[in-house]
Amino acid sequence: MYRQKYLFLLPGLLVLVAIILFPLLFTIRVSFSSWDVYNPGLNWIGGENYGRLWEDARYWQALGRLTLLSVTTVLIQYVLGFALALMVWRDLAARRLFRVLFLIPMMTTPVVMSVLWRTIFHESLGPLNPILESLGIGAAPWLSSAGWAFAAVVMVEVWQWTPFMFLLLLAGLLSLPNEPYLAAKIDGAGPVRTFFSVTFPMLGAISVGAILIRLIEASKIMETVYVLTSGGPGTSTETSSYYIYIRGMRDFQIGYSAALSLTYLIIMIVALTVIAKLLVRALVKDAA
């Protein structure tokens, strides 16, 4: 009778095996094959795909680019999100309206939003360059120059996902107790010092959670790059997931893209684990 309780775990276990374990194991197996458009099938070629990716400079460049893009966008999103959350946290007229307005970018579909931004960035037809010119700043080659295209991807990512940071940090701010703020006032801490000594450390755990969620999401960036720049000009905005997509879905090198995917997954797990530990140590006092 007592052992029958394990039967209740079976449906969940079956779903887990079906949607996580099987695809993962299958991908591992595929990564040791030369499955491509000419030879579809699970032949065994050993670690050949892994050897190939080790020497694939384009893959590692994409990974480096992804790292830069993720760190840059998440950092900017965190700072902006925190600033906006602080702005509408307390004494601001119509703060409820602002709280909703700030969330709008996050509610748009990434592909639709990327198409809109591609139109905005369009160098001859888009509205951004005329505005910059009217301000005397001058037009920029937004999507045709490597540096500007990277900046454009960063801007769109920041625009769309800052609200996510804002939402989590605002929820954290609203859950903070008032008492430490009263104590800080009496203990001689002005608004700036109170932020760094009370607000920021008390939001440490939420900050770590928000940054990690965004890093995980940012490391999977695909739609924005696909629609906005298609990885270009050249490969200047190509990220890991987009490169894997090219190898797998465009070149149909399924075996090789499986090896790329698995390597990417392992790197991400290791990197995010290390980052999580570092962030917890730096931002969460309880970890000391």
């Binding site: 107790p177 008492e179 430490p180 009263l182 104590a183 800080a184 009370v198 450390p201 008390m202 440490g204 006092k285 309880d286």
Partner: peptide, 8 residues
């Protein structure tokens, strides 16, 4: 109230 800094 017992007012202190919970994170310290």
């Amino acid at each position: 109230q017992f007012i202190n800094y919970p994170h310290l």
